[in-house]
Design a binder for these strands. Structure first.
Lengths: 192, 192
DNA sequence: TTTTTATTGACCAAAGTGGTCTAATAGGAA
DNA sequence: TTCCTATTAGACCACTTTGGTCAATAAAAA
């Protein structure tokens, strides 16, 4: 499918280095189709970004339950949602990972939408958190960050460990077990 | 200088996508020079990797004082060394960051050297650590990882915050202050 | 049938590729 | 001054790739 091939190519090479020839080849379609559906390379790229932002908002961020006031529990919940969305749209999420980090790679006209998403992301993760759960001898803001970095670090490590594996045919349960153990340690350490 | 231009280009585009034309242009030299000093693109690339591994070992890893048995203190020390080395060879370190994560990007003949470096890195960080400092209701191995992920997370965030700033003319003291505050929180949380 | 929509791939000029080679130059030795 | 050798530049090479167009169709709808 066109979009997946495009996600893949842009994620791997970035906008300029990405090749429309490579995309149609991987998608198994004729060159003409790409420019029949999209004005040009830039148009395709912008469509991909908009599409990506929409998916992240609707299939991930908006699903987070902000009624959960326990920060670690909320993060755990969000991690499951993220993984679920990732397994559904792996190419899209890999693409998201590349352009979200790099201001320069996103067209001016889409920056406001990205900012909106970032604000929403922040809200869904940090709003309505019960700060009284934390031990009172540490700054809660700092604890937030440390927990976030810890979890992201674990997830990155996982990503590397699973590089090249067949994700579809995998049993994730033991990994979730391991993840929960780490969360337990965080709970013991940062909560009172 | 040739090497810096090459580090930059390879870091940004990877081996295949990197352009020798772009390198000589950025270096401000004639095309001939590159192939006078190096056999070909591949030869240049391999030289850069070997050079990088040497610098990381001698200017960073081997400088870490393994007499320091406090894990967090050791990490703090290592962070200062890393930053010092980074400020001295920024292009080289950015290059290192790209190819160290990606098995496929390193030539077969250099893989043993990379493995040696990884082993050394592990040893310099985790050997001779006083595990009795940790609280005894959590698995020390897990605490190691969480602390590592936390610190790496902070450093990544810094990297992003400082993107595009003039590092040479910067005052890092307040950042180190902030960093130490995070280390204090880690200490309170993971040590007994 | 006719009309509309979807699809292909040959084709284009332009740009870029890694690499070679000749010719010029610089700097030191004689 | 005259050589000689170590550097250096960049024009040039054959070849690939680039984003994009377009006329020819195949398929579907009317």
């Amino acid at each position: 499918m066109i979009l997946n091939a495009a996600f893949h190519e842009f994620a791997e090479k970035g906008f300029e280095q990405a090749s429309t020839n490579a995309i149609v080849k991987e998608a198994g379609i004729g060159k003409g189709m790409l420019f029949y559906y999209f004005k040009n390379k830039q148009g395709l790229y912008e469509y991909l970004i908009e599409y990506t932002l929409d998916v992240i908002i609707h299939d991930y961020l908006e699903q987070i339950d902000t009624e959960e006031r326990d920060f670690i529990e909320r993060f755990k919940q969000a991690s499951r949602l993220k993984m679920k969305a990732f397994l559904e749209y792996p190419a899209l999420f890999r693409f998201a990972g590349t352009f979200m980090l790099d201001e320069a790679s996103i067209p001016e006209k889409l920056k406001p939408r990205l900012e909106k998403l970032q604000q929403l992301g922040y809200a869904m993760m940090y709003e309505n958190i019960d700060t009284s759960l934390f031990r009172d001898d540490v700054d809660v803001e700092k604890a937030f960050q440390l927990i976030r970095w810890s979890i992201e670090g674990y997830q990155n490590e996982l990503k590397q460990r699973l590089q090249g594996e067949n994700l579809a045919a995998m049993d994730f349960d033991p990994l979730w077990e391991e993840f929960y153990e780490y969360l337990e340690v965080l709970r013991k350490s940062f909560y009172s």
